[in-house]
Simulated assay, not measured.
Amino acid sequence: MKFNKAMIAFSAAALSLGVVACDGPKENAAEDAGEQQAEVVNEQAEAMEDAGQITDAQEDAITDAAEDKADAMEEAGEAADNADGN
Rank of each mutant, 00 (worst) to 15 (best):
M48L: 14
S16F: 13
A79K: 08
K2Q: 11
E74Y: 10
M73G: 00
K69R: 13
M7N: 02
M7W: 10
K2F: 10
N28G: 13
E49M: 02
Q44D: 12
E27T: 12
A38C: 05
A38T: 02
D60C: 03
E74I: 05
D60G: 01
D32R: 13
M7Y: 05
M7F: 07
N4V: 14
I62G: 02
F10R: 02
D64Y: 10
D68T: 00
A38N: 03
D71W: 08
A80D: 08
Q44R: 08
I62C: 04
A13Y: 12
V20N: 06
A12W: 04
A13M: 15
C22A: 14
A79D: 04
D60I: 03
D32P: 01
N4G: 04
Q53S: 12
K26W: 08
A33F: 01
A80R: 02
D50L: 11
D81T: 00
N86V: 15
K5F: 12
S11D: 04
E39I: 05
D50I: 08
E46K: 12
K26V: 05
A29E: 06
M48G: 06
K69W: 12
A83H: 05
E39F: 03
A30L: 10
E35N: 13
E39L: 07
M48N: 13
K5E: 15
K5N: 12
D64E: 15
E31F: 10
Q36F: 01
N86A: 10
E74W: 11
G77K: 08
T55Q: 08
Q58I: 00
A79S: 05
I8K: 04
P25H: 02
E31T: 13
D71C: 05
E59L: 06
F10Y: 05
E75Y: 00
E27W: 07
A9W: 09
A14P: 08
A51C: 07
A70Y: 07
A47W: 07
G24E: 03
D71H: 06
Q58C: 02
N28T: 13
A13D: 10
K69T: 14
A61R: 03
A38E: 03
K5H: 11
A12Q: 04
A29F: 01
G34W: 00
G24W: 04
C22R: 13
C22K: 13
Q53G: 06
P25A: 11
I8T: 08
G52P: 01
D84Q: 13
A38K: 01
F10M: 09
E75F: 02
P25M: 06
N42P: 00
Q37S: 13
Q44T: 08
V40R: 09
N42T: 09
P25V: 04
G18L: 11
K26E: 14
F10E: 06
A13G: 15
E43W: 00
G52M: 01
G18E: 09
D81L: 00
G34Q: 00
D56C: 07
E74K: 15
T63L: 08
Q58V: 01
D71Y: 08
D81P: 03
F10C: 05
E74N: 10
D71P: 05
A70D: 03
L17P: 03
